[in-house]
């Protein structure tokens, strides 16, 4: 099937197998490999992106469902020279180690702040429940999100 979608501001029209997942299109067709695959049961959140302004796990979305959608991935929120405040906060607070969960974590955290202000420690922890991190023990991630919300 042919689908059109806007990814990080650029429109793409592509022919995809009916059963392909959005994450496969993002990683393999568009070569945006910042969106990661960490599980096969939609539990880990490493593939989190924004679809029409809301965070979704891109492994739970069929490519066909994203036809016409506006997609933002980690590559689309900031650059090394002009970081998004959430990216900046992750670096400043040492909220990442191996970096594998980080793109999904940042995308979830941005959505959480955008819809959930004001957040406190508890609500950040609950809001990030769908994203697994094995390195940080979440301590600095929570700190980073609270830090970023003041700057967003």
């Amino acid at each position: 099937m042919e689908i059109s979608l806007t990814v990080n501001g650029t429109e793409h029209t592509t022919d995809v197998p009916d059963n392909s997942l959005l994450v496969e299109i993002i990683r393999e067709r568009l070569n945006l490999t910042g969106t990661h695959v960490g599980c096969d049961t939609s539990q880990c959140g490493a593939c989190t992106i924004h679809m029409n302004g809301r965070s979704v796990k891109s492994c739970t979305v069929l490519a066909g469902q994203a036809d016409g959608a506006d997609i933002t991935t980690i590559e689309g929120i900031g650059t090394v020279d002009a970081l998004h405040p959430m990216q900046e906060a992750f670096r400043e607070n040492h909220a990442l180690q191996c970096g594998f969960c980080t793109p999904g974590m940042i995308m979830s955290a941005i959505d959480l702040v955008e819809k959930g202000k004001p957040l406190d420690e508890r609500s950040v922890r609950e809001g990030l429940e769908g994203n697994l991190c094995r390195c940080t023990g979440y301590h600095n991630i929570v700190k980073a999100v609270l830090d970023a919300q003041d700057k967003m």
Binding site: R27, L32, T33, G34, T35, H36, V37, T73, I74, E75, G78, T79, V80, L83, Q87, F90, R91, E92, H94, L96, G99, F100, T102, P103, I106
Partner: peptide
């Protein structure tokens, strides 16, 4: 010191084996 490696990880520019 803030980490050198973070710039690539927070922008989705890391190169893991599957990438």
């Amino acid at each position: 010191v803030k980490r050198k490696e973070d710039a690539r990880f927070i922008t989705g520019a890391g190169h893991y084996t599957d990438d």
